[in-house]
Design a protein around this nucleic acid. Structure first.
Lengths: 349, 349
DNA sequence: GTTCAGCACTCACTAGAGTGGAGTGCTAAC
DNA sequence: GTTAGCACTCCACTCTAGTGAGTGCTGAAC
């Protein structure tokens, strides 16, 4: 509950009282989802004037685009710009309640095993904490260096290329040979592949591992190299984990909105690039139409990079209605993002 | 569009005309989602009587529990029992249209690479074909035999146990040692693990691999064995892929229903056991409350086992409203399930 | 005894009128 | 600049028909 004392706010052309009124409207609307009338605001901190004065201020805020009216003679609801101002200048830092902190601690105390499973569960945790739909983009494996390369025979002409990365991820690619290949040749080829690629990050495989031709004239190795290079290229597809999509159904009462939002969430590529775009613009919150994805116009997205060993490599996203609880979402994303980053850093050491 | 000629139907105590009427009501209601009146039914095949007669038959069908009225003076809608009769006795075999068949063919022509990715996309395909939410439970790896066991050092005291199974799946488990372990000891231990477990299905690891104590007194091996046994046990968690959950939002107009269905879908364990339960009871369709999951009372579930090399090992599920297109869903599940099974059989050879 | 036209009846749905209330904008006075 | 007062707006709700799709029943015809 961010209080608004007069000293802090006089920002971006809004005087203290207007800011306090905007703050009160946003806060109340987030809670009630009902248009907020002037009467509801007079008791808010920083607003010690009559409702008539509040009304005139509200009219000014509406002229300036911070508030809107669903219709004459209704209360005001915040516009995207209003939420933006709230997030940038009014909302306090926000924090998890003690229950939430406990939940996070317990989660990471018990998290272990497979990375993917942990990320999946992290999305569930975030959804629980914030009542938003959570998106977790697994740390891109592109920068993780190759720890091990193996070829496992799966049949006379088939093998599986298994690459273990330093962050604990395992990539695989099935290979088909034109001829029968025995285990000896496989392990020879695996050795050669390893010699070329061990210690390289996946991204650099294309650049650093000679495509073929070299002295490694062996056909099996050549096929292996091709598969390895394919892995490096194909893995642009970071894995996305979406948790708590049912929360979107709770957030809107127009079933049509729910449907279109869910449709977006099903498109991994769209979501991943959306999150990346938002991060790239330097925002940590994208409100309404700021992100340009039209079906999500009534949503806001909180993003938080996840740093592994100091490198921003994963992303956390929280999707909710524009009237979501921004301070809570930001706090949860920050806390969980930090812990997750730590955890992943440990794992990749 | 299953036609109903008099010869075929006289089943379970329903005379031909009543069956034809029930058939018409179900078919029309599936299409329109509106209660069906007697007038709409008179032109249906097998019903060449007046609306008055239809009405009296409908009243009988209602007495017998096949139809229900939302209120007096409204048309009839099918009950769960009505759908059940429709599915068991009235619905023709159903088939994909040519577009759908093409889609399936193209999909499996182009499907390649990682199993998980293919399963995920299969769920999307099914959702597209049927307009239902699709659930694909990956073939359990429990019966796949171990093709390769490796220990990859990830740090002085850490390693990753990487197990490749015959079906192309790769399982991993991170391991922490009490002491520093060099690569030599790791590969020694990996060799011993392999000697014990190669060719065993994961399920049998617990039974067949001596827990420890044996001659394999080596500490590293002991830890490895423990991890391996853990893998065998932990992997009860088959992977579930859910595609097209947005279709549930299109199927219902009560947002509350959508929310509760989505909440169920988020619980992997619930969904997997639900599908298994339905299969175990020998059904291929569970309608309404037949499956006992209360929030899904207005849904029906079509299940289809996926056989890999003749063994039923995976499951396909389609979730839709009780007024879903059963023939289409059954046909799509069968076709895709068959192709998927073939595909997985090839891969595990 | 099945079928069916006719008929009275039911009840959701819609439109229109009236009402209450929450909210506004304006204005004149402090 | 602030505010009390006031007229005004418009949604949300209720009430009242009116409509129409649908029913169940009945008595006659086959």
């Amino acid at each position: 509950m961010p209080t608004t004392d007069d000293s802090r706010i006089d920002t971006a052309g809004l005087d203290a009282r207007k800011a306090a009124i905007l703050n009160a409207v946003v806060t109340e609307y987030i809670g009630s989802a009902q248009p907020v009338g002037s009467q509801h605001v007079v008791d808010a901190p920083g607003v010690s004037v009559s409702s008539a004065t509040v009304r005139s201020d509200m009219a000014a805020l509406e002229r300036d685009g911070f508030l809107a009216q669903p219709h004459t003679s209704a209360g005001r609801i915040p516009t995207d710009k209003g939420y933006r101002f709230f997030v940038d200048h009014l909302a306090g830092p926000g924090s998890l309640d003690s229950g939430g902190r406990l939940q996070v601690r317990q989660f990471f105390d018990h998290a272990h095993g497979e990375i993917e499973q942990m990320l999946e569960r992290t999305s569930g945790l975030l959804a629980d904490l914030t009542d938003c739909t959570a998106m977790v983009v697994g740390p891109s494996h592109e920068s993780a260096v190759i720890r091990s390369v193996q070829l496992v025979g799966m049949g006379p002409r088939q093998a599986l290329l298994v690459v273990v990365l330093a962050d604990g991820a395992v990539q695989k690619q099935s290979i088909e040979f034109g001829e029968e290949v025995d285990d000896g040749r496989l392990s020879d080829a695996a050795g050669r592949l390893a010699a070329h690629s061990l210690g390289l990050p996946l991204t650099q495989v294309r650049a650093k591992v000679p495509s073929t031709g070299d002295r490694s004239t062996d056909a099996v190795t050549a096929v292996g190299v091709r598969a390895l290079r394919a892995l490096g290229a194909a893995d642009g597809g970071e894995h996305l984990f979406v948790g708590g999509s049912s929360r979107m159904a709770a957030a809107f009462d127009a079933v049509e909105t729910v449907r279109s939002v869910l449709t977006i969430l099903e498109q991994q590529l769209v979501v991943v690039t959306l999150l990346r775009d938002i991060l790239d613009t330097g925002l940590s919150v994208a409100i309404g139409t700021e992100h340009g994805v039209e079906p999500l116009a009534s949503c806001a997205i909180v993003v938080m990079p996840v740093s592994v060993d100091g490198v921003e490599t994963g992303t956390i996203g929280l999707l909710g209605p524009t009237r979501m609880n921004y301070p809570l979402a930001l706090a949860a994303a920050r806390v969980v993002g930090d812990r997750l980053g730590q955890r992943l850093s440990e794992a990749s050491r």
